[in-house]
């Protein structure tokens, strides 16, 4: 288990921080979003529930659009479009 951050296509990225607990997921998400260009989409995969609240609040604060949230078996897959 290790954090991975990959470019899926020209405007799509994926950050997988499964297995990490607070504060790793929210801090890695913040760093990843800083790398993206405006309009790029980040697919975020994590399994630490409490990080989700902070990430949602971070998106709201910075204006990034959290437009899809999926959850299955304790893992979360969220899609965020950078403002």
């Amino acid at each position: 288990m290790a954090m991975s951050f990959n470019q899926l296509s020209e405007h799509e990225w994926k950050l997988d921080v499964c297995g990490y607990t607070c504060p790793h997921p929210q801090m890695y998400t913040k760093k990843a979003l800083q790398k993206l260009a405006s309009g790029d989409v980040l697919t975020l995969v994590f399994d630490n529930p409490s990080s989700g609240e902070s990430i949602a609040a971070m998106c709201e604060s910075e204006g990034n659009e959290l437009f899809e949230r999926k959850e299955e078996g304790g893992s979360f897959v969220w899609k965020i479009r950078k403002v």
């Binding site: 607070c22 504060p23 929210q26 801090m27 409490s50 609240e53 902070s54 609040a57 971070m58």
Partner: peptide, 17 residues
Amino acid sequence: CMASAVRDLFAVKVPRM
């Protein structure tokens, strides 16, 4: 989690907790 209350202010600037 009260750790999040103080940590997330400085780490990701989120005041939620």
